[in-house]
C-alpha cells in the first residue's frame, strides 16, 4: 500500500472536520473493501479517517414503524438481531464469511455501492431511508450508478431506517468465486405496496415494476415466474452473461417470494 496518514475520529463532527481538512481523505469503517483496495495499490489517499471509535454510529434501535441501524453496525450484529426484519437478518448472514461479517458495516457497504453487494437490495427493497450528517435520503434516490451514490463529498452516513414489511424475502445466487451476489432479489410487501429490488445483475441495484404490480395482485412465486427482465445493459462477465443474469432474476425473484412466505 501507499503511504497515508491514519487518523482516528473521536466524534461525527471530528470526522467531518478531519475529512474536510485532508487533501484527499477517505473514511474507514470495517475496512473490508477499503483495506484490500489499498493493499493492492488500487487506491491512494492522503488520509484515512477511522470511524470505528464513534460509538453513536453503531447499534440497532426499533421504533414504531421500523428499525434504525447505525452506519457502523457490523453485518454479524444485523444477522443476529431480532429487531430487524428476518429477511434483512438473513441477508446479512449471507454476506462474505465470519471475518467479513464481524468487520464489515452497513454504512461502508452502501457507501461503496458495489453492484454485487447484498445490502443495496434490502435498502431499496424495503424502501429504507439513508440518514447522513446532513440529511435523509430515500433509497430510491440513494443508489445512482456503478459505485455511485447520492452522497456528496465529505458526507457521512450515520444510519439507515428500515420500515417494517408485512412480508419480505431475499434470494441470492452467489458468484461462485467471490460469493457476492451474482443476482440477488429482495421482494417485500410493504404497507404501501410491493417492492422488488435486484442487485448483482446490473451496474446498480434496480426495481422491477412489472414484478411489483404482479405481486401486488397475487403474492406468489407463480406471479413472477413468467416475468423476465431484459438482458440489455445487465452485467456480463466470466461468471455469467447478461442473458444468464436476466434468467436468474426471474428464478431468484420466485425464490425470494417463496422465502417470504
Amino acid at each position: 500500500m501507499y503511504n497515508f496518514n491514519y487518523q482516528r475520529a473521536s466524534s461525527l463532527d471530528d470526522a467531518v472536520a478531519k475529512l474536510g481538512a485532508a487533501s484527499d481523505g477517505t473514511l474507514l469503517a470495517g475496512g473490508q473493501t477499503l483495506i484490500p483496495t489499498l493493499k493492492q495499490r488500487l487506491a491512494s489517499h492522503s488520509d484515512v479517517i477511522d470511524l470505528s471509535g464513534i460509538g453513536d454510529l453503531r447499534g440497532i434501535s426499533a421504533d414504531g414503524g421500523g428499525v434504525t441501524v447505525g452506519a457502523l453496525t457490523r453485518h454479524a450484529e444485523v444477522a443476529a438481531s431480532a429487531d430487524v426484519p428476518a429477511a434483512l437478518a438473513a441477508l446479512a448472514d449471507g454476506i462474505g464469511d465470519p471475518q467479513v461479517r464481524n468487520c464489515g458495516t452497513l454504512g461502508g457497504s452502501i457507501a461503496n455501492a458495489d453492484p454485487a453487494a447484498d445490502y443495496p437490495a434490502a435498502v431499496l427493497g424495503l424502501g429504507a431511508t439513508v440518514n447522513t450528517n446532513l440529511r435523509s435520503i430515500a433509497a430510491d434516490d440513494f443508489f445512482t450508478g456503478l459505485f455511485e451514490t447520492a452522497l456528496n463529498d465529505g458526507e457521512i452516513i450515520t444510519s439507515v431506517t428500515f420500515p417494517t414489511p408485512q412480508k419480505a424475502g431475499y434470494a441470492k445466487f452467489p458468484n461462485p468465486a467471490s460469493r457476492y451476489a451474482m443476482v440477488g432479489v429482495f421482494a417485500a410487501q410493504m404497507g404501501d405496496g410491493v417492492r422488488v429490488a435486484v442487485t448483482g445483475a446490473g451496474p446498480c441495484v434496480f426495481r422491477v415494476a412489472e414484478m411489483e404490480s404482479a405481486l401486488a395482485g397475487n403474492w406468489s412465486a407463480d406471479a413472477v415466474a413468467g416475468i423476465s427482465v431484459s438482458a440489455d445493459g445487465l452485467n456480463s462477465d466470466l461468471h455469467g452473461s447478461a442473458e444468464y443474469r436476466a434468467h436468474l432474476v426471474t428464478v431468484m425473484a420466485k425464490r425470494a417470494v417463496a422465502a417470504a412466505g
Binding site: P176, A177, S178
Partner: peptide, 24 residues
Amino acid sequence: LTEGAAYDPDSGQLVNGSFMDYTM
C-alpha cells in the same frame, strides 16, 4: 466445477487473477 484460468483473447490479460474471480 470451478477453476480455470481465463485469458482475454485480445489483450492476453489474465481475467481472473484473484480469488474474487478465480474460483477455488
